[in-house]
Design a protein around this nucleic acid. Structure first.
Lengths: 117, 117
DNA sequence: TGAATACATGAACAAATGCTCATATATTAT
DNA sequence: ATAATATATGAGCATTTGTTCATGTATTCA
């Protein structure tokens, strides 16, 4: 399966590639998704908004580690937080993120099943 | 324009999230796209296959830097190489990559235009 | 065969990353 | 007010990352 295929010239991509800022922003999103802990956080938030402690339990890391990663995700505009009593509830801020994760997981699922032969 | 929205429970995502290997593989793809040089390489290859020296000129980095990054991309199965005389021609190995870049660039374009107000 | 061109690769190093530990802040309950 | 719970954050540290420099290999041409 994987024969040599031609990818039709992608005009969208070409038009953006001239803009350094856009390329940099794009790499920042992918960077956010490139860490195991952050990927877990974001995918958990894809399903529903969650408090810091819920995320901490789901990801099996310390509270501090989660908070540091949440700060990074906040700074990059991928999640937003609202306080609710003692808790702070985080939500996905962007629908593109869910799309990216879906496509990334599809690719990953194929790769894993192929190499796992 | 960004009101609070609900993301419908994504069954695909949920089904993959149990598998650690798949999550790890996914983060590896995103990691490949998270570096400026690599992103340039991959987007150039989205348009058409290219030799190492063509990529070097496009990305404005040294030949060594390009080769090191190409090795990483090869190891992760995102590109493949074929020799053609003195040249080695690199091509995209996976169509998912183009999709990911397209979505990432769309997100980035919105973000940049919003913050640039 | 020898020189030139194209590409690959190991070592080294500075910079970035992700975590832990300690501590600070905010909210609620007593 | 005090204690308890939930979250945030700075400093420090080990690891990873991306590059450069030097050198190695492959191919073509004279």
């Amino acid at each position: 399966m994987r024969e040599e295929h031609t990818i039709e010239p992608n005009e969208l991509i070409e038009s953006y590639l001239a803009n350094e800022d856009i390329i940099y922003e794009a790499t920042q999103i992918f960077d956010a998704l490139s860490d195991y802990t952050r990927f877990q956080i974001l995918s958990a938030l894809c399903v529903s908004s969650k408090s810091v402690s819920e995320l901490k339990d789901l990801c099996h890391v310390t509270q501090s580690a989660i908070s540091h990663q949440l700060r990074l995700l906040r700074d990059r505009g991928l999640v937003f937080a609202r306080r609710e009593g003692q808790h702070v509830i985080y939500s996905l801020a962007d629908e593109h993120v869910a799309t990216l994760m879906r496509v990334g997981l599809e690719h990953a699922a194929e790769t894993v099943s192929v190499e796992g032969e």
